[in-house]
């Protein structure tokens, strides 16, 4: 059983487009763009893979509601991820080639995964869960 090396590199927002373009020039494939809310900040991770299965991640950290540039000029297919990030996290992505304008996913509440919508996960979470079970 082998585990893949976790090559995660945190870069500045301004370096994003040149770095993505460099990956594209090197012939890498865009595997995924993921977003996570960590302590109130949005971590956006761009994952690439080269032809020898080397899995590389570039990460930017932006505040909630920030504006990020689109990587669709380099990777045409990235619009699905960027629309998803817009619809679930409320970040604005500028320059997308196919912009759904917030209608990619139908969600009951706007931006359900955004930092403000996250409940606090505390060590006392167990108590809360028990209570929730009983109240139901």
């Amino acid at each position: 059983m082998k585990r893949e090396a976790q090559l995660i590199e945190t870069i500045e927002l301004g370096d994003l487009l040149p770095r993505v373009e460099r990956q594209k020039k090197a012939g890498d494939r865009l595997v995924a763009i993921s977003c996570a809310v960590v302590e109130g900040e949005n971590e956006i991770t761009y994952s690439f893979e080269d032809r020898a299965h080397r899995f590389l991640h570039l990460r930017i950290v932006v505040p909630p509601g920030a504006t990020i540039p689109s990587v669709t000029p380099s990777y045409w297919g990235a619009f699905v991820y960027e629309n998803e990030i817009h619809d679930l996290y409320g970040l604005t992505v500028t320059g997308m080639n196919v912009d759904f304008g917030g209608h990619f996913y139908a969600t009951k509440v706007p931006y359900p995964f955004a930092a403000a919508a996250s409940p606090k996960v505390t060590p006392a979470g167990k108590e809360a869960q028990e209570k929730e079970c009983l109240d139901r």
Binding site: K126, Q129, E130, E132, C133, L134, R136
Partner: peptide, 16 residues
């Protein structure tokens, strides 16, 4: 002991 209630992935079980 209520472990079935607390660890049920769908919260189907309620033990009092």
């Amino acid at each position: 002991c209520r472990v079935c209630m607390l660890r049920c992935p769908t919260q189907a079980i309620v033990v009092d």
